[in-house]
């Protein structure tokens, strides 16, 4: 029997080594090692062999069985590798085709810039408060120290909706609401839309402002400057400087206009700078120390001081996003809106 085993073994090893496909390999395995396989048949006949020869032949048969199994496995691994590399070679898509474009919406820059400011100033303690757009003339003017027949009313041409009802000309109208509605200390930001009779390339009849008001004991003008300094550095970059120039708003005293250093040309202004046009500075807001008249109207007494500031959101948004034309803000053009 041993020669027969050897002949099967040798033949099978040869066949396994030259098998071309996994299917052939499987066919060989079944033909030789399967229940009715040639090697199995030989082992079945082992019963008719003498007791002395049985272990000897059994050992040889097992040896061949193991050898064949190992050879089949080796060839299988080889063939599987070939199949995989064939698959990898043949399967190919054009990966340079861009992905499907889902619809992504966006917030209007007025919303996102307002939120950015709320976030930044929120870090040093400001809360949010709002008021109506159709406002009493009292809150829009008298309450912020702009009496009737005062020349300061020229600064803001006003739309009226009825007797003593205006479309608020500034978010400063929220100041007295806040002060009468709450006790000090008061630290609020008032964002919202405002209206003025003004319509040209650089003015829209409706725009947005955010007002800041901080009232407490011992608030100093240096606190105002520090707040604006922090604001400017967060919004326009850490190298930003602020510059205050004396100015006049009836609801503050002293009053100031604030410029921030141009974030584009950074200290070396060039006439070609499209942001500051060579001045090196950008006018961004008006501010000052709350006029004592307001505390009087609020019933606060003389032991408090405070500061207030107000800025145009569109102005800040246009600077930050380098938007060339104010009118884009209200046109709803998706070519514009989709950029933010």
């Amino acid at each position: 029997m041993i020669p027969k085993l050897e002949s099967i073994g040798k033949e099978t090893l040869k066949e396994a080594g030259s098998a071309r496909t996994l299917e052939q390999l499987e066919e060989i395995r079944i033909r030789v090692l399967g229940k009715k396989g040639s090697l199995s048949e030989v082992l079945k006949a082992l019963g008719s062999v003498s007791a002395e020869e049985r272990p000897k032949i059994g050992a040889v048969a097992n040896q061949w069985k193991q050898q064949i199994e190992a050879a089949l496995q080796e060839r299988k691994t080889q063939l599987e590798g070939e199949v995989l590399s064939q698959q990898l070679k043949s399967e190919k898509i054009d990966t340079t085709v861009p992905g499907r474009v889902p619809h992504r919406g966006s917030l209007h820059p007025i919303t996102s810039v307002t939120q950015r400011i709320v976030e930044v100033l929120g870090r040093i303690g400001f809360d949010v408060m709002t008021g109506p757009i159709a406002e009493t003339e009292f809150l829009n003017f008298e309450a912020v120290n702009i009496p009737k027949d005062h020349p300061a009313r020229d600064m803001q041409d006003t739309f009226f909706l009825g007797p003593e009802v205006v479309l608020r000309t500034h978010t400063s109208s929220v100041q007295m609401r806040a002060m009468r509605g709450k006790k000090w200390p008061l630290r609020i930001l008032c964002p919202g839309s405002v209206y003025r009779c003004d319509y040209d390339a650089t003015h829209l009849p409706m725009f947005h402002q955010i007002e800041g008001l901080w009232v407490d004991k011992d608030v100093r003008m240096s606190d105002l400057k520090g707040t604006l300094d922090f604001f400017a550095k967060e919004i326009f970059g850490k190298e930003s400087q602020v510059r205050m120039r004396p100015s006049y708003f009836p609801f503050v005293e002293p009053g100031a206009e604030v410029d921030v250093s141009c974030f584009k040309c950074k200290g070396t202004p060039k006439d070609s700078c499209t942001v500051c046009r060579g001045s090196g500075w950008l006018e961004i807001l008006g501010c000052g120390m709350v006029h004592p008249k307001l505390f009087e109207l609020a019933g606060y007494g003389t032991d408090v001081t405070g500061f207030a500031f107000g800025m145009g959101i569109e102005r800040i948004a246009m600077l930050l996003h380098q938007i060339p034309d104010l009118r884009l803000m209200v046109q709803g053009d998706q070519r514009f809106l989709s950029q933010f």
């Binding site: 407490d216 240096s222 520090g226 205050m244």
Partner: peptide, 11 residues
């Protein structure tokens, strides 16, 4: 106005 220092208001 440029002589005014920057301080952060006290909470």
């Amino acid at each position: 106005y440029d002589k005014i220092p920057s301080t952060i208001p006290v909470l």
